[in-house]
Design a binder for these strands. Structure first.
Lengths: 205, 205
DNA sequence: TGTACATCAGTGAACGCGCGTTCACTGATGTAC
DNA sequence: TGTACATCAGTGAACGCGCGTTCACTGATGTAC
């Protein structure tokens, strides 16, 4: 709600790109990716259905931008979690993993767009850069945790894959509500358990 | 190709339900869930666009049936993998996990329908039964592996969650091509690594 | 400071398309006698 | 074995809808003088 509450000027919205991205995310959350349309996003933003064109080109362009935004938010959430955790590299890695899970459960629609859709254009420069950045952070976290435990550097790549898969699996099943055993558990114990599984998968390779 | 190659009789297809499911899967593979439509499925099956109605009701009904078929195929693939593995309970669990991954990578579209879509009706009896069956098999596998290693029975539920999340994460990232480190690896080494991560996550809880 | 004008952002009518749904129909099948 | 008829499965025309796209437009903004 950065916008003034006075009757909106019809022309020259001024912040339409951002407003459209917010509307797009809200549409995604409310109606799901399958019912997503440029027209309904424009309507939600209170703008004619042709207005998004200059900003995003077409639906794919809008979804691509939204997806990139998702990867940036993922990194933010993880950074936040790490800042609140102990400085110890293993604790940092665990915090990053829990951040990943927290992002997925509180941004289910976005998470699906990022990991279970072909609609965004993943060769888009902005998007692929955002995704690469998220991945790079993970690599660093895993490597530092492993160094602190004296693990073999040769197996870092494998450990990254293993840790990512574990976090991703937990995140995906929890966000889609399929892991009932864990989702009904009180969150402390769940986090503790997730953290253990996560560091285990990164360090035992 | 159970059908005769003679010019098909126009009326009374005889096997339309099965033919529609095959066409639906092919459409899903070719065009993805987002472009899936009853009309295109019917066209692919060589039948009028109203013909599917008596069999499935609507698009949701067809996707629900297809999703249930997916869960049954998943169990089949896992059973197959287990039959080819050593009788040792840990080896059986690992085979089930690798089967899960194999299913995901060779049935990407179906896998997405099963785990990353809201469109199938998951309260449908046939579908929820098929899904529950897949889950029950996993529970058994984990429990038996844990008994063979003397693990605490109280933590079985947690171990199931952990093992499932690990298998699921690997499966999802591999099938969507995002785990480049692993997908470019030769498959022997990948399976070996995946098996290790899997049994580790089930037994170390 | 004030006027003229170019640029830019969003409007709204029009279009063609594929979708799901309805409905009267028709041809194949199977059963009764 | 043969005929009559009910049932059933799939047809095809028609409909209304929301979609993306095009295009001439209009009103706000910003710059030159």
């Amino acid at each position: 709600m950065t916008e003034t509450s006075a009757p909106r000027a019809r022309y020259h919205h001024g912040n339409l790109r951002v407003a459209l991205l917010e509307a797009a995310e809200a549409e995604l959350v409310d109606k799901g990716l399958e019912a997503f349309s440029l027209r309904s996003v424009a309507a939600r933003a209170g703008v004619t259905h042709t207005a998004p064109k200059p900003h995003f080109g077409n639906t794919e362009g809008l979804l691509t931008a939204l997806c990139a935004l998702g990867f940036r938010r993922l990194v933010e959430v993880q950074d936040h979690a790490k800042a609140a955790a102990a400085a110890d590299p293993v604790a940092q890695l665990e915090a990053a993993g829990l951040g990943y899970i927290a992002f997925a459960t509180s941004n289910q629609a976005l998470f699906r767009l990022m990991f279970a859709s072909n609609r965004p254009n993943f060769s888009d420069q902005d998007l692929s850069q955002a995704a690469r950045r998220a991945f790079a952070a993970l690599e660093t976290d895993v490597a530092q945790a492993r160094r602190s435990k004296g693990c073999d550097q040769d197996d870092d790549a494998l450990a990254v894959a293993s840790a990512w898969a574990t976090a991703h699996g937990l995140a995906d099943l929890l966000s889609s509500g399929r892991l009932r055993a864990l989702s009904t558990m009180e969150s402390n114990r769940r986090d503790e358990m997730a953290a253990r599984v996560l560091s285990n998968s990164a360090l035992s390779v």
